[in-house]
Design a protein around this nucleic acid. Sequence first.
DNA 1: CTGAAAGCGCTTACAG
DNA 2: CTGAAAGCGCTTACAG
Lengths: 365, 365
Amino acid sequence: MSRRRVTTKDIAEASGFSRGTVDRALNNRGQIKEETRKLILNKAQELGYEPNRLARTLASQPHFEIVAVFPSEPPSFFDEIQEGMKVAEEEYKDFGVRLSYYRTITHDVPKQVEYLHRILDPMVEDQPSGILMAPAHSFLLDPLIARAAAEGIPVITFNTDAPMSKRLFYVGQNSVVAGRVAADLLGRFVGGSGQIVMLTGFSEVLPLRERLDGFRNQIKEYFPAISLMGPYEYLDNESIAYKMAKKLIHDIPELKGMYITSGIGLKGVAKAAKETDHRHRAKIVGFDLDDEVRQMLKDDVVQATICQEPFDQGYFAVKLMFRYLTEGFAPDSQELYTQSSIILRGNATESMGERSRHHLGRAIF
Amino acid sequence: MSRRRVTTKDIAEASGFSRGTVDRALNNRGQIKEETRKLILNKAQELGYEPNRLARTLASQPHFEIVAVFPSEPPSFFDEIQEGMKVAEEEYKDFGVRLSYYRTITHDVPKQVEYLHRILDPMVEDQPSGILMAPAHSFLLDPLIARAAAEGIPVITFNTDAPMSKRLFYVGQNSVVAGRVAADLLGRFVGGSGQIVMLTGFSEVLPLRERLDGFRNQIKEYFPAISLMGPYEYLDNESIAYKMAKKLIHDIPELKGMYITSGIGLKGVAKAAKETDHRHRAKIVGFDLDDEVRQMLKDDVVQATICQEPFDQGYFAVKLMFRYLTEGFAPDSQELYTQSSIILRGNATESMGERSRHHLGRAIF
DNA sequence: CTGAAAGCGCTTACAG
DNA sequence: CTGAAAGCGCTTACAG
């Protein structure tokens, strides 16, 4: 029943050529008569040959130096991205995969530029096999991505995209859908009518803009009785978000809901809301998850948050780069969306650490 | 910088023994002087040796025959579990992994018993390396699981559990948390008060009972103004669910919400609801996802559904069995929970096929 | 254009 | 208890 798998030796014997020649045919190495190549390929097909990746790796001793460029802050988020990368690195280390991590203090364009120059400078470092990056800006890094591409170094963006660049593809959240889902939740939580205010970190940051657009369009389409205010920009600063929320809550007594496009802002807004009478509090839906936000969910100050599952983003970024490098993986779409999770009170307290410990690559919910 | 990895040859040279003896020490094969063993182990540690799994596999040519026993119906769900298994099988085939699939028409206990007898009968089949199963009953299969365990064949349950059995652990949804989340959603969707009715497939089926308990407890704890009716059992039959819902909607004009613990029932209930005036419709939250349910979400007949991500359950069941077989993987907990997804109108139409095509192991949201 | 040989890092009989 | 040799399935110089 479990017939032994077909090897290049079998093909060699069946076709009358040596294993070296079989290898040339199978892997298009040239230096082979076209006729021979075809004959061997037919034989391989006929015997149902499937290459053994382990043997290939062991024989050719490949090295894949993958460089990952991404922010450090907030660590609760980006450390977990790195966790995911490390799990993938460990899974593929015997296949020659090695990661280097270049992290910038914040979404710091000049620092990323500097790192990329260093990475691409043949005098300073060996050329990497591929670059994984969470660009600090939606197009300012495009020239450097183009330079990498021109030098034959593939770039995959993750977590945040540079859609007009020469990156292979993007791995991360679908921010538009995330915004739509937030609208479904908050729209229903407020009962389908009344005043909702939108707050955003920076209105020109791509994923935040998409979270806003998805939200706004979904509300407009399905909740005609809801009126929207904003967006107000809190410059990704918690205390600005706090003060803004304080003022909005004070100025608009009939306020029914608040939508905040990032975790920093969510925390500021929630703190402001907590200081008001809970019977008149607006419903709050935002993004991201850490222990502080978990507590706010438990306390019913925040009603829902959308979590990006950073572990997955890191894990899949590495895995997909490896697949590109070894088998030329090319997706149909330029955007590969990772799972997001909706966190409510009922699933707020599950330990998220589970995911990496179990190498499940994900938490519950 | 990228120093060559340490091999058994290095250890052999450094310790003055042969590679065969190094292998005996490293892998505890016995037939080795205790002193030699310690010496070699110390050397290995000192040099920072890490075994190369590819070389080990190539040399030892292991075979892992994994048998998977699970239902066929509904195919939209269980075919996708099988998809996930096949992706993992493909990923690990060079490591010797081979799956066989034994699927029963429904959650058919006698058929599963028959299959397990066949699988465990040394006269009929070769003993498998491990068994993956979605038990058709929460304890009736326990004796057979015990028999497998006694014969040294590890059993992992997935999708549905047999918690008192001798299975290694369970991989699948956390049904209690799923129920709690459903309560958070429906409780808020109805505005925190009024009448909600609960319908369930079978009240004694474990995961359905847990979905019910999680829901009920969450409502009682956080929505004191909501009154619950039911559960009513629709025997996992769509038309029974339909008729039940018809009658409930008719009898209770003030009905605000309906909670249904399985996909079959959700569809029946939604059809009944659709036939009523949409202005007075109860909010509906249920489980599972197929094209029909997607449409109901779009049409706002169903407001939310919780999807088990069957692809993941299959994928991780295989991956974890492989890890158990090769490295003795043993989780801290007996329950390894896979991600569930909350599907609303805003994320209902994304193609779920993405996940397997991209081998991301998951869809967006 | 093709072949023979050595090698990747391990494991597995077999001999002593 | 230990070692020498062959082998897993492939690739890589090298020779011709």
